[in-house]
Design a protein around this nucleic acid. Sequence first.
DNA 1: CTATGAGCTAGAGTCGACTCTAGGTCAAGG
DNA 2: CCTTGACCTAGAGTCGACTCTAGCTCATAG
Lengths: 144, 144
Amino acid sequence: MGSGMGVDAAGAAAGTGLSIGQVAERTGLSVHALRFYEREGVLADPVRRGAGGRRVYSEYDIDWLAVCIKLRASGMPLPAIRQYAELVRQGPGNEQARLAIMREHRERVIDQIAQLHECLSLISGKIEVYEGSLVTGESCIVAD
Amino acid sequence: MGSGMGVDAAGAAAGTGLSIGQVAERTGLSVHALRFYEREGVLADPVRRGAGGRRVYSEYDIDWLAVCIKLRASGMPLPAIRQYAELVRQGPGNEQARLAIMREHRERVIDQIAQLHECLSLISGKIEVYEGSLVTGESCIVAD
DNA sequence: CTATGAGCTAGAGTCGACTCTAGGTCAAGG
DNA sequence: CCTTGACCTAGAGTCGACTCTAGCTCATAG
């Protein structure tokens, strides 16, 4: 490999076209996962193809993927993301539906946060007990 | 069925013995899940058995299950819970190890909460945009 | 001119956490 | 006596989300 020329050699002719490998690197998803997401219809549109049928991702695709990643991280299942993606694909006019999906999800995220806070206080309680039983003479209370 | 007598008919002779069905009801876990958890070694001890080999749970078992449920809810995998249960089973003297497990898990829970807050602000942002595009004449910004 | 590397498709495999089925025991009720 | 209901074990099946494999096409480098 000569100097740094993989940048557009890997992408398509356009300046902002990214190969699947580059997208994997930037998003943290594997190339497998990227193809899988596409098959599952979670992408807003079916990805352009370049020479030899290779995927060419735009900056927009990256942005959309970032959203998907956040939604996944907050526990939204792929079918729900696909549903949302379909609405986006259909263009404006279905804001009500999109809103409904997001509001529902927001509720779940809020619930999750609340749950995690409960867990956190349980865990912190246990940590305190153990720290205590280490500082004092090994067994302070019988709590496990 | 006459009056209310299933209470101790289902349990063992002892006052505080609970059948698997009762525990399922109280914990929200299925009887299948309860047996599965036992096989996986997440219970602090292997559960007493009553007439005909039936499981008899104590109040202590219920308490422990409540802890397990919280740990699961916060994403701790079953093998990790089993590890922790093993330490508890071994009795006092391994507080350091228990502490390490709990501290590590606490970190993950804190990370999760942070992540969820990020997701939440993304979602709230989208909700605002959609609410805006509904109030005004249908399309305010091009954002999806 | 071959070898390497990135990409492609279709489809099989994996993993965690359950969930369900089959086939059996036992006690109480009609 | 026979059925019903709660329980038992061992093991198979499911589901979501990936992950990996096999077998292929190209383009560029040595």
